[in-house]
Structures are given as C-alpha cells and as structure tokens.
Nucleic acid binder design. Structure first.
Lengths: 338, 338
DNA sequence: GATGGCGATGTTAGCGTTCACAGTCTTTGC
DNA sequence: GCAAAGACTGTGAACGCTAACATCGCCATC
C-alpha cells in the first residue's frame, strides 16, 4: 500500500468543477442532444483542465459492451497471419474498437476453445478467429452463442460467417498460367494436410489439371517452411518442368534446391508461389506468385463482425470470398522442349 | 431491443445455487484461505453446472487492475515487430495478462501519444512501446506517470526502462567477421536515418572499421525494403568486396542486384545481413547474418513491466541488452585477390 | 463455565459509469 | 398571459465484483 493518494479525476470531479451533475457530463461525453452549448463548453473546459479521461471499464460494466474485439490467431510470426492481424487491427480501430489478441502455439480444438473462453471472460464484444486449420474451424462451433464471431479461412464453419481468399481460384490461376505457357503438366508442393488453405490450393491445382485433361503428378507436401520446400525440391523428378508451390516461403526453398541441382529457373523448370510476400519480387529469379490481399481480408472480417453487433439479430450465415490475383514475374517461362 | 432475456449467470446465481453468499463464491474464485473444503466443492460444482464465468470488467472496476497490457507498435507486418509482438504476447499470457495492441501506420510524437492515451483510457495496467524510431522514444516521455511502461529499442528513453538488442555489438560482429576473412574494408547499406536500430548498426560498423584502422567507405541508405536494397546494390561500386546490410530484406535486394550485375556472391562480394529471418538460410546464396532473438526481447519487456507493476514503487531506470549472434552461412568468403 | 481466539461465513458499501425517470426552465401557440 | 410542449438538467439506482467489517460457531484455556 503506497501512500500514493493520487487518483485520476472521475466524472464527479468534472461535474463539480463545471457546476453541473455527473449525468450532464456523461451527456456531453456521449454527445447526446439537449445540452445547452454554454454548459457543454463549461464541461469540456473542466475536462480539459482536469485532464479527465473517461473510465471505459466502468462504462463497459454498465453498457455490457467493452468495445474490445478478440482475435485468436496461429503463429503471428508468419506473414499471412501477421498481415491479416494487421488488417484486422486497422479496421477495428477505425471503427472505434480495441483489439485483444491471443496467439496460439498449436491449434487444437481445446486450445481454441480455451482461448475463446479466455477472451469471453474478458468481455470482448466479438471474436475473429484466424485459424485456417480444420480443427480450429470445428472448435468454432463451440463458441458461446451470445458472442458474435467471424472465421478467417474457416471452411464451412457452422453458424459463423467466414471470410476467405479464393484459394481454389488462385491455385487455378497459377496452374492455368503454367499450362498456357505450354507445360504438359504441373507438379504441386502442398502445405500441411490439415490446413484448409493447403486443401483449397490442392483442389484448385487438381481442378485446373483435370479441366485441361492432363495427368495428375504425385503430390509433394511441405509444412510452409522454406526448409520443407527445399527438401521437396531435392525430391522433385528431373522430368518436371513446372511446379506450383503452395506458398512463397516453400517456393524459396525450392528455388534453392533447384539452384543446387543446377536446374535453371525458369529455363528448365517454372515455379509459381502463393502469397506474394514482399520478398518474392527479389527472389532469384523474381517469383511469379498469387497475391492474397490480407488486409482486405482483415477489413472484411471486421465488417462482418460489426454487422452482427449492430443487428444483434439472428446470425446471418455469410461467406465473403476475396479474389486472388496472379502476379507474373520471371520464374515462369515456356518449357524448353517447345 | 431484442426480447433476449438471456443473461449469463453472475456470482449471485452461483451463490444461490451453492447455498452460500456471493462473497464466499468470490473467495473460492480468488483462492483465498479459510473456506471449508466441502463448501468450496459445492461452489465449484455450482460454477460448473451454470457455466459461470467471472466478469473481469466488474473485477477490474473495483480492483483498479485490468490485467490487460497495451502494446503500441509500428507496422506489425514487418518481421521484427511481428516477432517481438509475438514474444510479448506469449510472455504476457504466460503471466496471466491480456494484450491489447495498437499498430501505428506512422510513428510520430502525436500518433504515439494518442495511442498511449487511447490505451490508458481503456485501463491497461502497463504499456510496451515497440517503436524503434527516435520520435517514438521521445513521445514516451509523455506517458502518464501513473502507468508503467517499457520501451523496446527505445534509445535512452527518459524514466522508462528499455529492452533492446545489442545493435552496435551485432554490427561489429558482422564487420569483424568480414575483416577477418581478409576484406580491406566493408561497405554498409544502412536503414532509414530516424531508426535507432539503423543508427546502432551504423555505429557498430564505424566502430569496427575504425578499431581496425580501415578507411570508411561512403554509406548507402535504404528503407528496410528489399527494393531499396536492390537499388543500393545497383549503385554499389565495382571495387567493393564486402557489404554489411542493415537487414535481411535489403540484403535480399542486394543479392538480386548483384546477380543482375553478374557479380558473384561470395566469390566477388561478400554479404552479411541482419535479423536472420527464416528465409535467410535459403537465399541465393544462404545469407550470413546477425540473429536477433525477438522473442527474448518480448519476454524481457514483459518482465520489466511486471516488475514495475509488482513493486509499485519508484520506477527503477533499467536497461536490458539482448546480445546478437552471428550466423555464418555461405554469402561470405575471403576476397578473391588474396 | 466464562473468556478469548480463530476459522468460516455473511453483510454492507463502494468502484465510475449509464439508464430511467423526475424534475425545472424555456418556448410556443392562441 | 397561460397552458402545454418541448428543452434542459438532476436524482437515484443499477452493472457485477471485491474490500472491509461484522457475525457466528467452535474449541482451547484457565
């Protein structure tokens, strides 16, 4: 117990100084009508003089709205989640909300549940789950009913709106680009099996090849890391001429492996990545890739969340798909043997 | 106004169900002594049955502690800030604190002030400022006295403890490594002038060269982006044999520029980066770089913050320096003309 | 068997807001 | 010039929790 008797001023202090009731101060703060301009000025001046700041905790207690949004995410060190988080934060703050984050080391049904419960007890008004793994999508169905939620890349989550990038379409774009260049078929280095994004890209890859009536090579699988792309690159058959890699980091690893194997890109092998990380343009060679607009994803997820908060009505199941875009650089070219 | 009369259970509901007073429920929840085991069990069971969750807002109102920590950061899309944020979040949650973030688009005195005020009114118990720019460090001196804060990479901030990586030492390591390999001198592509990290690396570079009695080449400057490294790479004089780049992204750009200029790395030019991003190992060639342990930085900053919270006493000015580590890969080699 | 002490529980009063309502003071219309 | 309709302002009671104190047993002590 320190003798520090200093207490930040409260509404009553402001009221007293301005010669009004605390309720009038509240009215001024909340910009309610029917306050005379002169008294409003007095109150504002008193607030200024005292350096008063409204106590949002007390406000939250009575209004039952904290104006805090919770975000549950997986490894915010990765470019995708980090960018999405950033987009969410910007959008939320723009709408006058705070953002409280929980970053999970592992996505399991239980860890997601726990994180959500944790945020719920803190009194968040809504939750965004950025967790593109199947388990996470399932865990979402155990969100308390009274708290609005949105899933990012959440698959066909029950009862919760979903925002996602068009993974299938993006993958198609990549594969079609390679086919148009004249490649017979396209290999794929996929992301980990339990990730919905990996799944979508696999689907798009298969769909594009099937649609063009090409044979489906055996699929290689990585874990998003450059190293796993490198390892896949060492295993890539010598007769492959085109590879679609599920993310840019693995593509980087692949490029490295190919360089070590003295395989020239794009002369002998064309490579397409996914994400368009800022570095992609400066890979050796600059990487053709599929761009995802993460900040748009973040913004949409907040929009959907706020929509639920405003209507307060039954949750409209909705799904927002953000298109992906092919960025053509110099890691792709027609096959040698044309 | 919906007819939704559903209200989550409150302490009184639990109390009634367990046949005790709400205060006893509180005691159980807070694990205070002097509650008979049998009543504790009854309370716990009632909590379980009702699915009760304590309302942390109400708790915060009366205890004047929210158990929320605020983080103000700059562009959480960058690898460094994102990793630091992640480290902070992990450490904070481990200590039972929530993390509320504000990510700034531009670091100015005013924007930092505003962000801090914003967090303060939300009632955070403490603030971590991750903002390695000079303006931010200054803005920190305007933090309200009653709220503990810690700066990450904050320079010699007044009255606030600082956690930082040993930028100068890291840069020295890089330059000394190059000199030991036999290079006459080392060029430097620096980060933007107003960043303290850039400044520290410049200092280390200069110090190492001066200590070895070498001439100081003209310094090139970038903005951390791969593109700026690329542009600097185009301007690099042909007689340069070794370059220390202030971060890995710019180093990537440099590698690209050198590749285009048909300059072989490391045969003709050696390159050292800074950060050790996960991709660095797979650059062409794998990049020798200086590793910063961002998660350790995050952990230390939380430690320092909690220390202030616990002691509640006068703020002990402290400074924690996290050492940097040289990671030797294959982008460095002895100069050709040895 | 009165006294004290201590463990276990209950009671009351806030924390700083907003909400619902009750006032009071101006207008306005005729 | 007077009533009614508005504008403006104040009063009390929540919100759900913890802190401080009060109370009740029960046992040890002399």
């Amino acid at each position: 117990m320190s003798k520090n008797a200093f207490r930040p001023p409260v509404m009553a202090d402001v009221a007293q100084r301005a010669g009004v009731s605390h309720q009038t101060v509240s009215r001024v703060l909340n910009e309610l009508p029917n306050v005379r301009q002169s008294t409003k000025d007095r109150v504002l001046q008193a607030i200024e003089e005292l350096g008063y700041r409204r106590n949002l905790t007390a406000r939250a207690l009575v209004t039952r709205h904290s104006r805090v949004l919770g975000v549950v995410s997986f490894d915010t060190t990765l470019y995708g989640p980090a960018s999405t988080l950033h987009g969410i934060e910007q959008a939320a703050r723009g709408a006058g909300y705070f953002v409280s984050i929980v970053s999970l080391k592992a996505i399991t049904h239980d860890s997601v549940r726990e994180a959500i419960g944790y945020l719920a007890s803190q009194g968040v008004d809504g939750i965004v789950l950025v967790a593109p793994q199947r388990q996470a999508a399932q865990a979402l169905s155990s969100v308390p009913d009274d708290i609005p939620a949105v899933a990012v890349e959440g698959g066909r989550a029950r009862k919760v709106p979903v925002v996602s990038v068009d993974q299938v379409g993006g993958a198609r774009l990549a594969v079609e680009h390679l086919l148009e260049l004249g490649h017979r078929t396209v290999w794929h280095i996929a992301g980990p099996a339990d990730w919905l994004e990996a799944e979508g890209r696999i689907k798009g890859w298969q769909a594009a090849l099937t649609a063009a009536d090409r044979e489906l090579p055996e699929m290689l699988t990585g874990d998003w890391s450059p190293r796993s792309g490198y390892e896949a690159g060492l295993e890539l058959p010598a007769d492959a001429t085109a590879v679609f890699v599920a993310n840019d980091q693995m593509a980087l690893g692949l490029l490295r492996a190919l360089a070590e194997r003295r395989i020239k890109v794009p002369k002998q092998v064309s490579v397409v990545g996914f994400d368009d990380v800022p570095e992609a343009e400066f890979f050796g060679p600059p990487l053709t890739t599929v761009r995802q607009d993460f900040s748009l994803v973040g913004r949409h997820s907040i929009d959907l969340l706020l929509e639920q908060l405003d209507t307060d009505g039954p949750i409209r199941r909705r799904r927002v798909i953000v298109p992906a875009e092919l960025i053509t650089r110099s890691s792709t070219a027609p096959p040698r043997s044309t």
